[in-house]
Amino acid sequence: MSEDLTLKMDGPALDAFLRRAFPEADPDHMPRVLEVAPGLVRMVQPYASRQLRPGGVISGPTLMTLADTAAYVLVLAHIGEVAMAVTTSLTIHFLRGCKPGDLVAEAALLKLGRRIATADILLWTEGRDRPAAKATVAYAIP
């Protein structure tokens, strides 16, 4: 990848931005950044029983939301605080039922262009070696 992968925002700055950008969200239940590195972000969504669907597994919308959030945070980590970067596509593959627990997302940058950024996101609760879903997300950069 030949793009400039210099980080423009660290974990605390990204967490603070999310809280400012989404003031109505409960800060105790918002996803938070665990790790930021060039081309990579790892986040965790604290578990809450409202995330469950019938059958006792974490719902698809919860998984999609964290995948989209992780991609957004990954892009912002590399371009800076650009609130109007927006999702242009999100494709997700559900690999297994996602057991209740803190949900982890690991986002890896595939391409950071001038106008579009693309990332792969792996999601799990049981461990990285037992992924529940894999998503590819593209963001338009204004």
Rank of each mutant, 00 (worst) to 15 (best):
S2C: 04
L5P: 08
L7S: 14
A13Q: 15
A16K: 10
F17Y: 15
L18G: 14
R19C: 13
R20L: 12
D28P: 03
H29G: 08
H29T: 13
V33K: 03
L34C: 14
E35R: 15
V36P: 02
Q45I: 04
A48S: 14
L52K: 03
R53T: 10
G55S: 04
G55F: 06
G55P: 05
G56P: 10
S59N: 11
G60A: 10
P61T: 12
P61H: 13
P61W: 13
T62H: 08
L63N: 03
L63S: 02
L63K: 03
L63V: 03
A70W: 10
A71I: 03
A71Y: 07
Y72E: 07
V75W: 00
L76P: 01
H78W: 07
H78P: 04
V86P: 05
T87A: 09
I92R: 01
H93D: 15
F94W: 10
G97F: 04
K99Q: 13
P100E: 01
G101T: 12
D102K: 07
V104R: 11
V104S: 12
A105M: 05
A105P: 09
L109E: 00
L109P: 01
L110I: 13
K111A: 07
K111Q: 12
G113I: 00
G113K: 00
R114I: 01
R115H: 13
A119N: 04
D120R: 13
T125I: 06
E126H: 06
E126L: 08
G127A: 07
G127R: 03
A132C: 15
A133I: 00
A135Y: 01
T136M: 10
A138T: 12
Y139G: 05
I141E: 01
